[in-house]
């Protein structure tokens, strides 16, 4: 019994962290139309940033500043935001596809840097020596995990509410206006490139927050955590859930993460021994099929953007 609950808590914690990331991507893609092909780089900047800033001193690589945890987490978010700022400044004035290419490149470069620059973040061995906050008070067991889950849940709700307010604010309407017609918005004195940059950085900071929480949860991060796989999964969550809808983003995160874990379990249980080595690849194929199917039959996602639904009578 406690085993099942314990597993559910573990599952829900991971799904909630991923949901925060999907919300960040939704601000970029769903609300602003910015294609971030390197989600994992910003997530990774948050994870590495948090662990390096908040960890204990380590031999051989940067880190061990032992910062007060919230500051370390904030530092990770700032690292992700700074990276977004640089990438965005270079690409957001150009045509939209450049952003996709640039972010994809940044993610590959980020992973390679983390894998090879041992002095920076421990190379392939990753960043160790991070002590989870409040461990002395809560211990390492079930109690800690419950407490951590609720913390993540509260952060998820806070991020959700923040984004809901943002989308309904004048800034959110401006994002929609720019997505609808950039020239018309510019003629009204709006500066599309600057507004897009703001949205891109904000979304990346949220991705960094998710990464920071992820790193905290495992008290460890390595190049294995910043593979393109994660970008792919987070995109799948957004597409299936419904781009442009924050509720859809959260729903998609839980659904896809559930499907991912369930398919992993089923494959390890029922696939023939010879195929066991390939279960990971088979999971990819399955998720790929889900994405393609979704794009073909319900491209707006399970919970589509609400403004489209409420726009009755606009057809001429």
């Amino acid at each position: 019994m406690i085993g099942t609950i314990s597993y559910l808590v573990f599952f829900a914690t991971t799904a909630s962290i991923l949901a925060i990331a999907v919300l960040g991507l939704n601000l970029q893609w769903g609300n602003t139309g910015l294609f971030n092909g390197g989600v994992v780089a910003f997530f990774g900047a948050g994870a590495y940033g948090t662990l390096i800033l908040g960890g204990t001193p380590q031999d051989g690589h940067l880190g061990g500043y032992g910062l007060f945890y919230p500051l370390a987490l904030l530092g990770g978010m700032i690292a992700a935001g700074l990276m977004a700022w640089v990438v965005g400044l270079l690409t957001l004035r150009l045509r939209h596809d450049y952003l996709a290419i640039a972010t994809f490149g940044v993610a590959v470069a980020f992973e390679n840097l983390m894998r090879n620059a041992e002095w920076l973040a421990g190379g392939a061995k990753g960043v160790r020596g991070f002590e989870r906050p409040l461990r002395d008070a809560l211990g390492d067991g079930f109690l800690y995990n419950i407490a951590f889950f609720f913390t993540v849940l509260i952060i998820l709700i806070a991020v959700y509410l923040f984004l809901e307010r943002l989308v309904a604010s004048p800034f959110g309407r401006l994002l929609r206006a720019i997505r609808e017609d950039e020239e018309a918005a510019a003629s009204l004195g709006k500066t599309p490139s600057r507004i897009r940059l703001t949205a891109f950085i904000t979304g990346s900071v949220i991705l960094g927050l998710a990464g920071g929480l992820y790193g905290t949860f495992y008290a460890f991060v390595s190049p294995q955590d910043v593979l393109p796989t994660l970008t792919f999964q987070i995109w799948a969550m957004l597409i299936v859930g419904g781009a442009g809808n924050n509720r859809g983003a959260v729903f998609g995160a839980f659904l896809i993460w559930g499907a991912w874990t369930a398919s992993g379990w089923a494959l390890s249980r029922f696939a023939p021994i010879e195929a066991q080595l390939y279960t990971g690849s088979m999971q990819f194929v399955l998720i790929g099929v889900v994405i393609v199917g979704m794009l073909m039959w319900r491209p707006q996602g399970l919970l589509p953007e609400r403004l489209v639904v409420s726009q009755r009578g606009s057809k001429e």
Partner: peptide
Amino acid sequence: RPDQLAAHGIAYVPQNDNIFRSL
């Protein structure tokens, strides 16, 4: 730049798509 022209007192009403439909 077009976004700065508004401050100079020039407004442009495009031929098509000159309003934001979803707002």
